Amino acid sequence: MEKNYTNIDVLISKAISGNATPEEMHELEQWRSAADSNRVLYERTKKAWDRSEGYLSEEQLNQDKFQLTAEYSNYLSGKIKRISRQSFIYKIAAVLAFPVALGIGWHLFNGGEKQLQLSEQFCEISSPKGHVSKCILPDGTEVWINTGSSVVYNTASFNRGIREVELEGEAYFEVTSNKENPFVVVTSHANVKVTGTSFNVVAYSDSQEFETVLAEGNIELQFNAGNRESLDIKPGQRAVYYPANNDLKIQQVEADMFTSWRNGELLFKDATLNDLVKELERIYDIKFHLKPQTLGNFRFRGMFSYNNNLIEALEKIKKTSGIDYYIENKEVWLRKTN
C-alpha cells in the first residue's frame, strides 16, 4: 500500500533550506524513492533554490527567513500557503512556503531564466471548519479569521504604501495605526479603508450581502458597484449592503454581539432561528432543514461556544425553544414538538 505523504511541500522547503530534522530528512528520502517523478520534482526545486541565492544578499535572505519564521509561529492555528496568480509558478511558490525567503522563486525549474515578479507572490491564511484562527500581519495588525474564512495579502507590496488584504468570509481586524499607509480590506462587494481601528467584516462571495461592524475608531466604506459614494461609519454602527439592489442599511448595535465569535462564542439577542442555523451550518459544516419553513421566524437569544459539539448545540435549542431535532444522512432536521 502506498504511503500517504502529507505536507510534502513544506518538507521539501525545510530540507533545501537546512531546517529539516533527521526524522524529516528520512521521510523525505522515502518520498523521493517512491517515484521518479518525486525525485525530479525535488531536484528541480533544489535547483531553483540554488540559483536564487545568487540574486539575494545574505542580509535579505536572513531578513526574509526571520519574517517567515515569525509568521509561521503566529499562524499555527491556521493554514499558511504561498499562492500565485500565475499558474506556472504555483508549485514553486508552494514548495518554498516557509521557512525560506520571500524572494526565493526567481527561477522556474524548467531550466529557463525567467524572473519571478515578487508582486505576484501572495500569502493566504485560512481557518478550518469549527475553528477560529488568529494571525499577526507584518505591520503588527491582528486578525481573527472565522471558521471557513481566509485572508490573502501580497508579501512584497504589503506595508509599502497601502496595506491591502483580500477577505473571503468573516474576519475581525485590530489595525495598527499608520496614517501614511492606509489599511484596506478588499471584498467582492465593498472595501473597508482605515488607518488604525477595530472592526468586523462579513463578506462571503456566495452571499448577496456585505456587513461591517465598527467597534472603535473610524472606517470608510467603499462600494464596488452602483453609484453610492464612500461612507464613513461610526463606532457602534453596523452597515449591511445589498449589492443586488444597491440598498444600504445602517443600524446602531452592540458591537460585542457581532464580534464575540473571535473568542469562540456566538451571542444571539432576539435573533431568528434562520440566523442561528446559518451560523451553525458554517461552524459544523452540515446542512439544516426546517419543518415547516416558518419555523425560521422563531426568535432566539442565547450563547453558543465553538467548543460545544453539534449535539450540545441542538440540545440547547431544544431546551430553550421546544424545537426537536433528528439527524439523517448527515443532515439536521428541526421541527416543532407537539
Rank of each mutant, 00 (worst) to 15 (best):
M1H: 09
N4C: 10
N7R: 13
D9M: 13
I12V: 13
G18Q: 10
N19K: 15
P22K: 13
M25N: 09
M25Y: 05
H26G: 06
H26Q: 12
E27G: 04
E29C: 06
A34D: 08
V40T: 12
R44F: 02
K46H: 13
K46M: 10
K47I: 01
A48S: 15
W49H: 10
D50W: 05
D50S: 10
Y55C: 08
S57A: 15
E58F: 07
L61S: 06
N62P: 09
K65E: 15
K65R: 14
F66L: 13
Q67G: 05
L68P: 02
S77M: 11
I80Y: 14
I80K: 12
R82A: 12
R82P: 08
I83P: 06
I83Q: 10
F88I: 13
Y90F: 11
V95G: 00
F98K: 13
I104S: 04
H107W: 14
H107M: 12
G111N: 03
G112R: 12
K114C: 10
Q115H: 11
L116E: 07
L118T: 04
L118S: 08
L118I: 05
E124G: 01
S126D: 05
K134A: 09
N146M: 09
T147R: 10
T155S: 15
T155W: 06
T155H: 09
A156W: 12
F158H: 02
G161Y: 00
I162W: 09
E164P: 04
L167H: 04
E168M: 07
E170G: 00
Y172V: 03
Y172P: 00
S177K: 11
V184P: 01
V185Q: 01
T187D: 00
S188N: 13
H189V: 04
V192P: 01
T195C: 07
T197D: 00
N200L: 02
A203N: 03
Y204C: 06
S205V: 13
S207C: 11
F210G: 00
E211F: 00
V213D: 02
V213S: 04
A215R: 08
A215Y: 06
E220W: 09
N227E: 07
R228Y: 11
K234W: 14
G236I: 03
R238K: 14
A239S: 10
D247N: 11
L248Q: 07
K249F: 06
I250D: 00
I250P: 00
A255C: 08
A255E: 07
D256N: 15
N263H: 14
F268Q: 01
V277R: 00
D285A: 10
L290G: 07
T294Y: 08
T294E: 15
L295K: 04
R299N: 13
M303N: 06
S305V: 01
N307R: 11
N309E: 08
I311P: 05
I311G: 05
I311Y: 07
E312L: 07
L314R: 02
K318M: 07
T320R: 14
S321V: 06
I323Y: 03
Y325D: 03
E331V: 07
V332T: 12
